Amino acid sequence: MRSPIGEGRERLLQALFDEFGENGPGANLSMRQVAERLGVHHTLLTYHFGSRPGLLRAVLSEARRRDNLVIAAAGDELGFEALCRAIWNFYSDPAHEDRIRAFFHLVGLAVYEHDVFHEFVADLDDLAHILEAAALRDGATPAQAEQQSIIATSCLRGLLLQRLLTPTAEIGAAAERFITSLGAFTGESRSS
């Protein structure tokens, strides 16, 4: 008896994580090479993921979902500024560099093919919602919390992109300066 389509896709996704880790298959591997490493026919990958970007999108979306669970669990105890620092430290870790490169690759594709990457783009707000909840805990109004989370998410992603393009110590210092400046937007400044 054949398994339902979603179940087969989930098994393949888990096999991708088992074989390639959270960063997914490297950019230099074709769908055929990925399938070969998994011990499946490449048409099975095409059936479940559509294309190389579709496969990468599925792996990165699942990795981001897992990351957000970890970040959200830690975030329940952290204020807005501390949560931003934890997010920066997590994603700026060199162990995540390949995944960050793949993320920006997919974001670039999404700019040109928004319909194809609609789900991927929609999931980008998950991190902003986690930050928004932290800002609310710090005493921000709902409108302030939403704005703060948009600013923080956009700036942290911009700093990560800059770090990929020009990896210098100044990027880390700029990130720390930005994160420290967030205190002006949080309850720390409203209570003084």
Rank of each mutant, 00 (worst) to 15 (best):
M1V: 10
S3A: 08
P4L: 13
P4F: 12
E7W: 00
G8V: 10
G8F: 04
R11Y: 03
L13A: 12
E19I: 07
N23V: 09
N23M: 04
P25W: 07
A27D: 13
N28V: 06
Q33K: 10
Q33C: 00
V40Y: 00
V40K: 00
H41Q: 03
H41I: 00
T43K: 09
T43W: 01
L44G: 10
T46E: 06
Y47L: 06
H48L: 07
G54H: 01
L56H: 01
V59R: 02
V59T: 01
S61N: 11
A63M: 15
D67W: 06
A72F: 01
A74K: 05
A74N: 06
A74I: 01
D76H: 11
E77Y: 07
L78C: 01
E81K: 14
L83D: 08
C84H: 06
R85L: 09
I87M: 11
W88V: 13
W88Q: 11
W88K: 12
Y91I: 00
Y91H: 10
S92I: 09
P94M: 02
A95K: 13
E97A: 12
D98C: 05
F103C: 07
H105W: 01
V107T: 08
V107I: 06
A110Q: 08
Y112H: 13
Y112K: 11
V116K: 03
H118L: 14
A122Y: 01
D125V: 13
A128Q: 15
A128D: 15
L131W: 08
L131M: 15
E132P: 04
A133Q: 13
R137V: 02
P142H: 11
A143G: 08
A143T: 15
A145S: 07
A145I: 02
Q148A: 11
I151W: 14
A152P: 06
C155D: 00
Q162R: 12
R163I: 05
L165Y: 02
T166M: 09
T168L: 01
T168H: 04
G172K: 10
G172S: 11
G172L: 05
A175F: 09
R177P: 02
F178P: 03
F178K: 02
I179R: 04
I179T: 03
I179C: 08
T180A: 14
S181A: 12
L182S: 03
A184P: 00
A184L: 10
G187E: 12
S191P: 13
